[in-house]
Design a protein around this nucleic acid. Sequence first.
DNA 1: AGAACCTAGTTAAACGTTTACCTTGTTTCG
DNA 2: CGAAACAAGGTAAACGTTTAACTAGGTTCT
Lengths: 340, 340
Amino acid sequence: MTVQRKRAATIRDVAEAAQVSTATVSKFVNGNQRFTAAVEARISQAVRDLGYSLNPMARGMITGKTGNVGIIILDIRNPYFTNMVKGASRVAASSELNLIIADAAESTSPELGVLQSLCRRVDGLIVSSRLPAPVIKALLETGTPVVFYGRPSPYPQNHNVGCDNYAAALMLGRHLRELGHRRISYLGFSGARWSVDRGRALQDAFKGVDASFRMFDANAPSAEEGERLASTILLSQEMDDAIVTYNDLLAMGVLLEAKALGIRVPEQVSVAGFDNIAYGRLVSPALTTVDMMGEATGELAMRKLVGLIKGETVPLDDDTLQSRIVARESTRARKPRVND
Amino acid sequence: MTVQRKRAATIRDVAEAAQVSTATVSKFVNGNQRFTAAVEARISQAVRDLGYSLNPMARGMITGKTGNVGIIILDIRNPYFTNMVKGASRVAASSELNLIIADAAESTSPELGVLQSLCRRVDGLIVSSRLPAPVIKALLETGTPVVFYGRPSPYPQNHNVGCDNYAAALMLGRHLRELGHRRISYLGFSGARWSVDRGRALQDAFKGVDASFRMFDANAPSAEEGERLASTILLSQEMDDAIVTYNDLLAMGVLLEAKALGIRVPEQVSVAGFDNIAYGRLVSPALTTVDMMGEATGELAMRKLVGLIKGETVPLDDDTLQSRIVARESTRARKPRVND
DNA sequence: AGAACCTAGTTAAACGTTTACCTTGTTTCG
DNA sequence: CGAAACAAGGTAAACGTTTAACTAGGTTCT
């Protein structure tokens, strides 16, 4: 037993009711021809009477377009991605494209088959650069328009949008340097390609001064994981001047655990993250971060994708957004210590 | 100039290469027949050689299925919905359905046209009950399987899943009552249908004791709006014992503004919300809330929808999830005051 | 006035599958 | 051993659009 959906009116039903050919109806609903008043009236009447709306699949067979775009994200619960999706969704809607969201977290690396099947259901794809190289290769070979997010990117010959991670981290590093910090821990997340860029830039920001670094690696970019690792970082040797994390979620976890341990932020240690998610402002101390322009990234990515789908020539080089440091309460100038 | 996508291999190409008919290939890829070893080998070889993957639109024309399901949410940035989507996404993926997300926030009430167009692109829909009644009516008339979320629901004859809002708020009300609170403010959000159920239950929880209530209404269920209204609530008369908000986001805004005003939570006033979003645990004081089971709701909703799509008989009455109070630091027993 | 061009509309093929209905050969069984 | 049942595979119609090519009548130009 299959579900019983009312048989919807087809273009033929409309054509018959309006006493014209299906071609005429087709042109009418696609709005690419002028009609005599009489014909126009008959068709639009028939459309209304029958509640006609065209079958996107039948159209798709001819035009080769699905009317859908896909976006592959790592975890829909991460507010950074949520912001991206928001931006992307807005421009997709304005282009009358539906947004298919594939949460890659389910299958850590989505099987090729699934991805290929997705490809056939969309006119274009926005993709995290985290996918394994062979998968990316197969994806590009399908000819599906793809925009990657995250810069710098390993796919320079393709479209990439986002803030420059190196530049962003450099900015944050300088901020901490100016505050007088010299002992820095970076809690990265090697599951994300951008993490190493951020770590490297952070170190580079301290070139010329005598600074020390420690690197840690999280298993997930989540607050829970930040909490779990915070005590290791906070208690493992003489205290850091500052802890920088791969993202705000990790930083918020660190903040929470620091509080549990009785370590005061920013008095004893500064903490900062990346992304500028909305919740960073609500915790205390309010989190210093770098705004990675999630929503604008999503918008730009989708705008480019729409361009590609329409076959416009989309330039490859206008796609780096400016990040912006958001200094709040969790970072502060280093106080001289007894052993200084 | 249109974008140039490689012409993908069709079932006919495969049939030719394998020297069988298209029907045979079709049966092969759909796995509903046995084959001789020779034929099977030839077909699977051809499929691999040509990189064949079937065209979902062509299939959809025949089967009437799109392979997509839609979910209409109010705002993808709200973590409650994000959790829902996560749950829904998981079961959709396991049923090999793609998830189309329509963020209704863009067009506050989505036009009927877009919705109808969406209907034709999906096999079923999960929908917020917030849509205007005529829209709902038109939606149901299309015959598209629909599952609503949020209970109690104005569509009892349809499928609805979620926690019982009345029961949940009753639970929270009793919690506050046991803590000795008697002067309560409720910051609702009339844009959401469930808000009134929560407000009513809250009052009912204090039946039999002498309690006073004030009601406020937010323009949006956001932290910013909570902040904006907090001072009005906090300073407008002698202080409340407790402030309950429509959701956690509003509560977190209230928390932030209270801090700015120098009002201490929970010492001077208790604050609680609904939803149990992940961030409530990270703010300080950690937020007391009621877990409305977003993820489980999403899972259940999608499970029901999948059942409906498959034509199974899905019972109407197994769809209320149990909510759960999460008492944290933002609520505390009322201290006697000087004028008591 | 005749040629050339529009304009409003029609015809029919094509898109890539699935599926009901055949066909043919093989097995089972009384 | 003959009939019935089954298994493996083929034939061709159908799904609901779009669109290239065409028609016929009207308008504009020279």
